[in-house]
Every structure is written in C-alpha cells, then in structure tokens.
Design a protein around this nucleic acid. Structure first.
Lengths: 338, 338
DNA sequence: TCACCAGTAGAAAGCGCTTGCTGCTTGAGG
DNA sequence: CCTCAAGCAGCAAGCGCTTTCTACTGGTGA
C-alpha cells in the first residue's frame, strides 16, 4: 500500500541500497545520483518505514513516558522537562496515561517494551502492591536484556534508577511551619491510599504533628483523588463533620485549590479563619486568591533529570537522584485567628 | 540482544509459527503445546517485537496526537478526551508537543508517518503560512496513501476531517454580553499572531465592537503567548499604557488569569473596576477569585470526537464537526463601575 | 602503459515476525 | 480394515529496510 524504498529506487534508476544511503546520508553518493533519488522521493511522496528500519537497526529513538494523568499539572510540568531534554537529544517521547491504575500502567510498559523503546520512564508515585512490583522488576529485567532501561520519576525504587523529590520531608517542614505559627487543629486531605506519593506526604504531616506532641484526629482527615474536585468534596466532608480547624493541608495543590473554593463557599475566610496550604507549586498556585502557600517540587527539573538518566547509554547506572523541595510562602497561610 | 520468537520456539520444542499462534491466539493450538510455549515465554521473559510485527501486518495500533503544549490545560483536556476513546478502542496514543512551532509540528507528523500511525490528529490552531499548509497537504496525501489519515482538532481545514469549536462566534457573543452590560472601553489580550485560533477569537471580538459601532483602540490591545505569564505581562503593559478600560477580554483563560493577578497587584478590583473574561473554561477557571467568566469550549468532547474520526476505517470521510461554545457567567464580570 | 586506489553503486543476507500452504496424526464412519 | 476429515504443527516466503562485501569506473603515479 505504502510507497517503498525499492519503488523509489526503481523510479530513480538506482538500487535500493543507494536510496537508503541518500536518505541516511552516511555513505558517499554522487551529487547527481543523490539529486535523482531525492527527486524520486519527492515525486512519490515517500516516507521511510520506521518499523522496517527499527527491525534492522534494533533501535527506535523513542522513549516511553508513563504518567498518571497528563491533565494534572504536576505531570504535565514533568513532561515538559522530559521533553525538553528529549528534543535536544533528538529523541521522540511517547506519553501514556495510566490514570493511576496499576494494571494499565503495566500494560503500557509492556507495549513500550514491544516497541523497543530506548527507555521507559515511569512517572508518579508507585500504585501497586507486591505483585505489581514483581512484575515491574520482571519488565525492568526484560528492558535491560534488550539494552533498554527503566527509570522511575517521582518515586524511589530499590535497584532502579530514580529521580525523586522529598515528599515526606517537605510535608513535614510545611506542617511544622503551621505549628510554629500557632496552629493546633490541622486538617489533612490525603490523596489516594494506593499511591506512594500520597502516603509519603501524609507520613511527613504526621511526623511533624508527632514531634509537636499532637495526635492526629481521624475526624480531621479526609481523602481525595488528587483532583481539584476531589479536594473540593473532601473539604465539604470535613466541614459537614463539624469539627473546627484553623489550618488545612492538601496533599497536592489541586486538592488544596478545590478545598479553598469549598471553604469560601462556606463563608470562611482564608487565611483569617483557615490557613490553606498545598504541595507541588503548580503554576496556578500563584493565581488563586489568596495565593497558595505550598511546597515547591522542581517538576520540570525532575523530568529533565529523568530523561538524562534515560539517555545514559552506559546503561546500568542505578543513580537515585533526590531533589530538594522548598516552602513557598504566599498569602493563604497565616497565624490562627489573624 | 533481545529474546526472539525462535528462541522461545526452541526452548518449547516447537516451530516459531506455533509460538506466534499461541501469542496471537488466532489459530488452534493444542492445550499441552500452548502450555509449554507459555512456560518458555515466561522463562525467557519474552516480549513480542512490535516492529517486526508491524512490518508483516502493516499496522501499528497507534494514533499520533500532536498538540501545542501538554502543559496547557486546553490541550491536556483535549488529550483526555482523545485517550478515553482510544483506550476503549484498544489503541495507543503517542503525544507530541509542537510548542507552536510549525516546523516542529511538521517534523512530528513526518515521524508519525514513519511509524505508520493508524491516524494523526493535529490539535490546536494552525500555526503556519501557505508553505506550511502545502506541506501538510502533502503529508495528508502520504498518510492516506498508506491507509492512514489526518484529522485536525481545534481548527478547520479545507478537505480535511476536522473537529472544531466556534471560536469567533464565542468571542463575539461574550464581547456582546460585555457591551450589553454597558462596557465601552474594552481591552483585549490577543494570543500569538501566527496561531489561527488566536486570530479567530480576535476577529469575533472586533466583530462585536463593530456591530456596536465602536472602533477598537490599538492602545487597548496587547498580545501574549497564551500562557499565564504572557497574560500577566500583557496586562501590565496595558496598565502602564495608562489607558483606562472597564473590561478586559483574554483570548484564553490562562492569560485572563495571569491578567487578573496583574490587575489585582495594581490595586484594581475585579469586577468592580475591571471585568475580566477569558476563553476555554479550563478547570481552574472556577477556582480563581472571583471565578472567571468565560466561553466554554467542550474540550474533552472535541478530543473524543477527533479520535472517533481517526478510528473510522471507512477512511475518506471529510466530516467537519463544529461544536457549540457557551458563555459561562461567573463573578469576574459585572456592569462597569458596579 | 600498467597497477592501484579513491569513489560509487549493487547484490544479497538478514532483522523478527506472520501466515498460506502442506503434511502428519488420529479417530470415526463405512 | 480402509478412507477421510478434523485437528495441529511446520515450512518457507515474504514485510521494507540496512549494511557488508564485492565490483566497476576512471584517474594517478611509477
């Protein structure tokens, strides 16, 4: 159906080897011959077949990136970083959404193995149990056996090259900051329980409370799905619960922003009645009113670093890069009752 | 380097044809044989080579999606729609960022042709001149010659299957609404001049003014790059210009939101001093304060429709779907001086 | 004038799969 | 007991490229 190399060769009156050489520019071809070939390529509107090419060269110039959800700014920012480095290196990236489903994620990894991706980058917290981790290990070995590799980004994993940020430490520092301001009744909106990032941030929160000698109250804990609407609903549940709190910690910015809207709808002032803080520092965090205090995760940088690891041809490096997070104080946080 | 079919075959003591049949489950294979094969597959951690497969079957189960920028919510929402339909149909999607650069977009289309994508969906306004359109036409013909196809989404194009929204009409209706409220001095923040969507929205704005007998003043026009920061800077330029205006129309929500922050920093009240409206209705439009009045573009639906067109195997359909937009009134808009 | 080399082009052997066709076993029916 | 069909498995021919090796040409230096 498609035009093939040999059709081009025939039209140009040369062998297919010559056409291949013109197209790849890796072998001397006489100027006049080259011109004739290029003309034939034009005439037939020919385009190389990447599959046939990959079959002989055993490489695809493609890196697979599996994220939880491209429409979540956390991930789209990471993707930006990945892509920038990929572009510079002339690599294509193939982006897949797992929607936080472990089996879908594994399915995508399989497909990427089949496509002989030069590397696979798994972005976002781990989302499965031990069986899932085992399968991942098997895929990793399979990738490495074909001279490819697996990188994780936004999570850490034993024996796997990784780029991560300090989720627990960041949450702990931010919570401590709230405690220092005098807050004692802190609400928390956790992310999905099966997501590693979510658990780590919660851990940091609890650690700060423990250090301050405060026992986290179950009635002040809610859970969302890391989406804006999830945060909104979680906040409404907290409010309906009737418990008072002077600060609310969202385990990501998206949920914190949804929660702010819910609080405002209940007539609460931010930060006067309730301080609200988030996590990630997605771009829009500056634009909500009051601007959101949060923990900055260097998302683009994480993506860039992950891609750099993916491109390392030396192969077997198991670098575990851990990037610092940093508190960004904006107007949504204040002393209680201020 | 990788494990191959015949290695599996050898280990299982069968021919490679049999292994292929077990893996594709499209031909009767004795239960006992199948078990032996599957066991060998497990043992060797074998994964099919998609390239070799694509070479014989001449299809890739993959659809390419080229967007301007995944980190722009407009695009990531469209992608969500695309992916949902793709998932249901068992297709993989490969997402590429053109970053609004015509030559990069064309380069990605080429790569997708090489990969023998089942279809290529070009998302976002056109971003090039006639030479660009010509090249696109050539690619479209090339795709169709290989039984694939080109779909555009978020723009319209002669002779090409498309899914679009009413950019000009939406902008016109929204502007008319502002005029009806009594606004007479309207500022406008345009998007990049080389982006079709941007021009269309501007056209709608000017049409509404013209109908009301108002001449658009150049000093009230600014331009940004469709990003939040671009909107912020554009608004600052307008304010520095010293011209007064009671309403500001952003040609997308992201810029309108950036502009709101700039206005607020100048001590202006929204909508008291200035009404602000945007375009798209990205999810966060509800969460800024005041919530942003905007024109809702059915982004997910657009993506879904585009993918449906992509999957139509009958091929040569040139459907031009045009989806309605709708004004969503929120708190950022009011009568002047209210 | 001749041997040689630089510069080009072609022949052909795969790369790892799929699949049409052939062919071997069996068990059932005659 | 033979025939025949059903059920399985294997052979081998590609799919469209890349690349090694071979081969031809004309100029060059001896």
């Amino acid at each position: 159906m498609s035009v093939t190399l040999s059709q081009v060769a025939e039209l140009a009156g040369v062998s297919s080897a010559t056409v291949s050489r013109v197209l790849n520019a890796n072998y001397p071809v006489a100027t006049e011959t080259r011109a004739r070939v290029l003309h034939a390529v034009q005439t037939l509107n020919y385009e190389l077949n990447a599959h046939a090419r990959a079959l002989t060269t055993a490489s695809s110039d493609m890196v697979g990136v599996v994220v939880h959800d491209v429409s979540d700014p956390y991930f789209s920012e990471i993707i930006r970083g990945v892509q920038q480095v990929a572009d510079e290196a002339g690599r294509l990236i193939m982006i897949c959404n797992s929607l936080r489903d472990a089996s879908r994620e594994l399915a995508y990894v399989r497909v990427l193995r089949r496509q002989r991706a030069d590397a696979v980058i798994l972005v976002g917290g781990a989302i499965g149990d031990e069986a899932y981790e085992e399968k991942l290990t098997s895929h990793m070995q399979g990738l490495e056996a074909s001279n490819s590799r697996l990188i994780v980004c936004g999570r850490s994993r034993a024996g796997t090259a990784s780029v991560n940020a300090q989720h627990a430490a960041g949450a702990e520092a931010l919570t401590r900051r709230l405690l220092d301001l005098g807050h004692r009744r802190l609400a928390f909106i956790a992310g999905p329980a099966h997501v590693g990032t979510s658990r780590n941030r919660f851990r940091g929160f609890k650690r700060a409370l423990a250090t301050a000698g405060i026992t986290p109250e179950p009635t002040l804990m809610a859970q969302g799905d890391f989406s804006r609407d999830g945060g909104y609903e979680a906040a409404r549940r907290l409010l309906r619960g009737g418990e008072r709190f002077t600060a609310l910690v969202g385990s990501n910015d998206l949920m914190a922003i949804g929660a702010m809207t819910a609080l405002r709808e209940s007539g609460l002032e931010i930060p006067g009645d309730v301080s609200v803080v988030g996590f990630d520092d997605i771009p829009v965090a500056r634009d909500v009113t009051p601007a959101l205090t949060t923990v900055r995760v260097p998302m683009r940088l994480m993506g860039a670093r992950a891609m750099e690891l993916a491109l390392q041809s030396d192969g077997r490096s198991r670098a575990a890069i851990n990037l610092r997070t940093e508190i960004v104080e904006r107007e949504s946080m204040g002393a209680p009752g201020s």
